[in-house]
Simulated scan of single mutants.
Amino acid sequence: MKSFEFRRIMDATARRAAFEACEPKIWWERNLFSTLVIVDPSIAIDILRSTDFALPDLRALVREMRRRQPNSFIHLQPALELLPIFLENQDHTRIRKILGQYLSSKHHEIEQRLPNVICGLLDSIPQSGEINLVTQLLTPLIGDVFSKLVDRDLSEEVMGLRLGKMFEVKHTMASLSKLDVMLERVCQFLGTDPSSDEDEFICQLNCLVFGVENVISTLAENLFLAFQLSGGTAPAQLPPYPVEVMISTTHRSAISPTEIAGHRVKPSDIIRIHLEPFGYSNDRAINSALFGAGRHACIGKQLTLTIWKHLTEQFNSRKFAGVVTEFESDRSHSFHVTKTLKIVCPDKADRVITT
């Protein structure tokens, strides 16, 4: 099975079965690039934690394109210097530290608000008719959280930006130009030039780039899975820990020639690590790495899990039951964004839940 075929499986339970049945768990795919695909968490986690492997250097790509076209990417290039996932060494450590401190300073206030915000949103959902979980639950919930994180109400435009495309492993001039425009919108919203080195701007930029779309999609994917597993008659129940996240794969390259599970790997090779199997494991230590591991692990993991905890408690207590009738997700090699999830409750055929 080719790795791209996994992203075509929209059915969450079928995708899990495909990963579990997949043999071998590590193989080469050779097209334009030589790619070593890994779906074995026990192999992948060591790579994620190792300093012998690096993320694709998007900064170098943008610098080269700007060398050819000096007036291009005037927002993207300086922004990349402020996003720790694209940095290494001292720059990476410095920005991760200030971002960690910023998130910690906001965490208590946000957690204090969550029970009432979630309760209010769930109370407002009607008991019959069509229900849109994006507009009536997920978007206002995450909008409230991130408004507190960036100290201003999020605009509809900012909430709708597709900043997750920054996680793509392959970029073109057109895709990078779109990212540049999106980052211009973010900087305008924050009222700061992208070259700013102010700690507050750096933290707020990171929150918007890696947070809003990511958390909404993670919650939506897990709601879809919960309704699937319920069978349509039993209440859908979110598990104690997320099974799906928006970032489905992550990519690395070897800093120097090395060997992985008997495979010789060169620095020019791409290493594609599928993260979905981390969520399917019964080992909590493996589950935890669903958010990454090592120096580039998700720094917003704790806040995401806090949102998850409070949403799970209240959602599960409401005992929603329904049958999935339509699911649409924009999936790439690196991430997926849920567009539509329709649920019809078996006892009320006119009731539809849509995300």
Rank of each mutant, 00 (worst) to 15 (best):
E326T: 10
E64T: 04
N316D: 12
F224E: 11
S256E: 14
G160E: 09
S175M: 07
Y241M: 08
L290N: 00
S42G: 01
S281N: 13
D11Y: 02
R7A: 09
Q314R: 15
R96G: 07
L305I: 11
H333N: 08
R16M: 07
T51C: 06
M159I: 12
E157D: 13
V150D: 01
P70V: 01
S329H: 04
M1A: 07
L223P: 03
V265Q: 10
C298T: 09
S195M: 13
I47T: 03
R185A: 14
A236Y: 01
M166I: 15
D269N: 15
N316T: 12
S256I: 07
R94A: 15
P140D: 09
A297K: 01
V323K: 14
L275P: 13
H263V: 08
S248N: 10
D350Q: 04
R113P: 06
W308T: 03
P235A: 05
L183H: 03
M159E: 06
S334C: 05
C298Q: 12
S50G: 02
I260F: 10
A297H: 02
H107E: 14
F73R: 00
S334M: 07
A79R: 00
E200F: 05
E213M: 13
R16I: 05
N316W: 04
V134A: 14
M10N: 06
L229Y: 05
D46A: 06
A54Y: 08
G100F: 04
K319G: 08
Q127C: 09
F315A: 12
L137R: 02
P126K: 13
E168R: 11
I45W: 00
F201G: 12
S3H: 09
I273S: 11
K301R: 15
G100M: 09
C187R: 04
L219G: 01
G232N: 08
C207D: 10
K2Q: 08
E109H: 13
F167C: 03
V117N: 10
N116R: 14
R252A: 11
I45K: 00
H75M: 03
V209L: 08
I271N: 11
L137S: 07
A293I: 01
V215H: 03
A261L: 05
L83K: 04
A60C: 02
S253M: 14
A12H: 04
I142Q: 08
H92V: 03
L76K: 01
T135P: 00
I45Y: 00
E64W: 00
T13A: 07
K148T: 07
T258V: 09
V245H: 08
